[in-house]
């Protein structure tokens, strides 16, 4: 039993936060010209060390500068110094065919698409305003919690885990409200900045690591 990853989307369908724990198959870093915002997660930005995986346009793109910290907003860390141990994903990633692994921005869009389609499907089938809760495959389980303001919290866990909706709700009512909503330096709904900051990441991390399903 374990927890693999957490995605947070805002109401504009944009991934504003990402964090992962036990992922043996990590995403490739996002394409530089593609769509991820700064301050989503330090783990998935285009990396200079992997020139073979990216197209040539990666390095000529002026948008690369977005990942460097511009110092506009003090409390938002583009590269937070998190106490997380280095991921064990690198060795596993390299052993697989790189083209079969999605880049992070593709993956984030697919997750959002699946969640949105299933939400509409459940709503249609139930005939009332029923929410989609989770789905399960042979190797993982995806949980969704949607707030009234349109934020979607998506978590991938072990397939045998019980419903983790309450955990997502706790993340919302605890760290999210405390360190994102009540953070005066955080531009909510900006469409150009994620919500990653050191306090939010640490406190989410502590909360997840304290769960019994997390091992």
């Amino acid at each position: 039993m374990t927890i693999h990853s957490l995605y947070i989307y805002d109401r504009h369908c944009v991934c504003v936060y990402y964090q992962d724990w036990h992922r043996t198959k990590g995403p490739r870093p996002a394409a530089a010209a593609g769509g991820i915002l700064p301050a989503v997660s330090p783990a998935v930005y285009p990396r200079q060390e992997e020139p073979t995986l990216e197209s040539a346009s990666t390095y000529s793109s002026p948008r690369n500068t977005l990942t460097s910290s511009s110092g506009v907003v003090v409390a938002i860390n583009d590269e937070p110094r998190t106490p997380l141990p280095p991921q064990m994903q690198t060795s596993a990633t390299q052993s697989q065919n790189p083209s079969s692994i999605l880049t992070f921005d593709e993956e984030a869009k697919l997750v959002y698409g699946v969640v949105l389609s299933l939400r509409n499907m459940v709503r249609k089938l139930s005939g009332k305003d029923e929410q989609f809760v989770n789905y399960k495959t042979s190797s993982y389980k995806l949980h969704l919690y949607e707030t009234l303001s349109g934020y979607k919290f998506v978590m991938l866990s072990d397939p045998n885990a019980d419903s983790l909706r309450f955990v997502l709700r706790q993340i919302y009512s605890g760290p999210f409200l405390e360190y994102v909503v009540r953070n005066p330096l955080m531009k909510m709904d900006s469409r150009e900045h994620g919500i990653d900051n050191e306090y939010f990441r640490m406190s989410t991390d502590r909360m997840i690591r304290g769960l019994t399903v997390f091992q």
Binding site: H4, S5, D20, H22, R23, T24, K25, L102, E107, L110, V111, G113, V114, S117, L118, N120, M121, V122, L125, S126, E130, Q131, F132, V133, N134, Y135, K136, T137, S138, S139, Y140, L142, L156, S163
Partner: peptide
């Protein structure tokens, strides 16, 4: 829609290969 979702879910696995969705729960 379900057919499409089923195909995508097998690609989103965080750990190795995966089947498509086997169980989808509402409330």
């Amino acid at each position: 829609t379900l057919h499409g979702i089923h195909a995508i879910t097998s690609r989103l696995s965080p750990t190795g290969s995966s089947s498509g969705a086997q169980e989808i729960c509402g409330e």
